[in-house]
Amino acid sequence: MSKPKVALYWCASCGGCEEATVDLTERLFDLVEAVDIVFWPIAMDFKREDLEKMEDGSIDIAIINGGIRFEEHEEMVKLLRRKSKIVIAYGSCAHLGGIPGLANAYPREEILKFAYEEAPTVINQDRVRPMKKTTVDGMEFELPDFLEYLKPLDEVIDVDYYIPGCPPTPDLTWEAVSKLLSGEIPPKGHVFGSDKSLCHECPLNETKPDEIKLEELKRPHQVVLDRSKCYLTQGVLCMGPVTRGGCEALCIKGGMPCTGCFGPLEGVYNQGAKALSFLASVIDIEDEEKYREMLEKLGFDPIGWFFRYSLAKGMIYRKKGDGE
């Protein structure tokens, strides 16, 4: 019997997800033992043609990380989709847009202008911008275009499963892959991780009083957090309540409140809006002026606070065709 075929690919991502794969450490050998890695450009020399040559549906599992920001990403994931039985969106960027998705708060033009002209470290007197087509010494080169927005993977192709996290933990990765290889197939659309929020598994949950009432909010850099006490009750935003568990509460254990990388739970439409709602609810200020003042002083930044990983999913766009 031939071994299951696995493909790994990255799109707009930082490389952390690839690191996470390597962090499987010894288990990586078990994986290589169990499967045939047929495509993994970051680790081995695979070309697009290699993929094109494969029969449609011949790859068992394609694990794709990163968001879709370039034409190239779009083409490649569409190709991978065609060649694969199962596609997994791996990590926050593929799942929700992730950190690169924060760029969606700005139009494409503004990003290019800043990156190529205005950034303090840039020297570009001729204001040269990357061009789709360019001719050098009579030879024509073509670059993949920078798209209008970053899209999570499932807005470009059909996705079967999600492994969340920035990056996903090696244990969760291992659990998910071994489940799929053993034929334990969850329903389509399943997000690996816990079905409950991080609070449920948080080691500090015990210390949380039944009622939380925050007299004021603080930014994490303004306080020395007591690491033995629920961070939210100390007045800092912890995304734990609004974030899927399954990450082993690594940030919490490391002394940082949760920033929400595992994304929302089932039934939550918009992680950021929900985070805003729960936080606003437990602030114990009834005087609107005082409240506005407090937010002002904190440099209130709802996108940064609540949408760190989910802006590409949670941003308001008009669906194509609606605005006519």
Binding site: D195, K196, S197, L198, C199, H200, N205, K208, P209, D210, E211, I212, K213, G240, P241, G245, L265, E266, G267, F278, S281, V282
Partner: peptide
Amino acid sequence: DKCSGCGICVSICPYGAISL
């Protein structure tokens, strides 16, 4: 099956109708 016991609802119920 969904409740994680975060206690947000307990904190904001105006009637103290929710407990953990």
